[in-house]
Amino acid sequence: MTRSNRLFELIQILRAAATPMRAEDLAAQLEVSKRTIYRDIAALQAMRTPVEGEAGIGYMLRKGYDLPPLNFDEEEIEALHVGLAMLMRTGDGALQQAAARVGRKICDVHASAEWLQVAPYGAPLDDPDNGCVSKAILRQAVRSAQKLRLVYVNEAEEQSERILRPLALIYHVDCTLLAAWCELRHGFRHFRTDRMLAADLQDDHFVEEAPLLRKLWQEQERDTFVYNL
């Protein structure tokens, strides 16, 4: 979680709290250290966010403080509800949790659209405890233009190890594909996440090459995938 996202989540937690929140409880919810919470509280106070309290007692957000309302019309709210629900089909556990948080924030300022239902059937849920590669790691690799070491099994049950330059994730109904430049094959390849045995982030980045590689991949696959709405 980036620092800006963490500060936003910290505001949301304090906003919903009925009593002062201790630093250790905030740290547990955000999965950071108490020292990080103290720094974040100080940063929010420096930005004139009305956080009150002190170490050993707890922190609260002064009543009356709120974030700007989300201005969506009825059909936009319905589109968001369906779109967030369809994330259940991706099998991406981290995105599903993020979608649930977004949904709760929308419902805080808009009427619910629970009458719009989406069947959850789709790609299997990624579960690192059962040997599945986390899609959150793959998204991180694409986002940060960071090389990835992949252990992969193809359709013929042949196992290989390769270094990839991840470029995109493509969510199908029944599976998810990672698009990447494969240094072993010297070309663009697509890898099913359900055939990945391991994926480890490497120290090497390819930030400068990423935009050109992604553009070349998009040109090559322009008749296959939708990139933007």
Rank of each mutant, 00 (worst) to 15 (best):
Q45L: 07
A27K: 05
A46C: 07
T49G: 01
I41D: 03
I37R: 03
E9M: 14
R22H: 15
P20R: 01
M47P: 07
M21N: 10
K63G: 04
A28V: 04
A18H: 13
Q45A: 10
M21Y: 08
D40A: 02
I57G: 13
T49Q: 07
G53V: 00
Y65G: 00
P50H: 00
L14Y: 04
R62H: 02
I37W: 00
L44S: 02
A17M: 09
K34S: 08
Q29N: 08
L44W: 02
A27G: 02
I13W: 04
Y59I: 07
Y59T: 07
Y38D: 10
G53H: 00
V32T: 06
A42T: 14
L10E: 01
Y38S: 08
G56E: 11
T36V: 06
L10H: 03
E52L: 09
R39E: 12
A16L: 09
Y65T: 02
P20L: 01
A23P: 02
I11P: 03
A46M: 08
I41H: 06
I37L: 04
E54N: 11
L30V: 06
M21W: 10
I11A: 06
A46H: 12
A23H: 07
L30W: 02
R22A: 12
G58W: 05
K63R: 14
Q29Y: 05
I37C: 03
L26D: 03
T49V: 14
I57H: 15
A46N: 13
A55E: 13
A28D: 09
Q12E: 14
T19I: 12
L10K: 02
Y59R: 09
M60K: 11
K63P: 04
E52G: 01
L30C: 01
E54G: 12
K63V: 03
M21D: 09
A18Q: 13
V51W: 03
E24L: 09
R48N: 14
Q45D: 07
L30D: 02
L10G: 03
L10P: 00
M60F: 08
A16D: 11
Y65D: 04
A17C: 10
Q12H: 14
Q45T: 08
E24C: 11
Q29C: 08
I11M: 10
L61T: 01
I37G: 02
E52P: 00
A46Y: 09
I41R: 05
K34D: 12
Y65F: 13
A23C: 11
R39F: 05
L44C: 04
V32C: 04
L10A: 01
E31K: 15
I37K: 05
R35S: 12
A27M: 01
L30Q: 03
G58R: 04
M47G: 12
I57C: 15
K63I: 03
A46G: 11
R62Q: 05
M47K: 15
I37S: 03
R22D: 08
K63D: 06
T19A: 15
E52T: 09
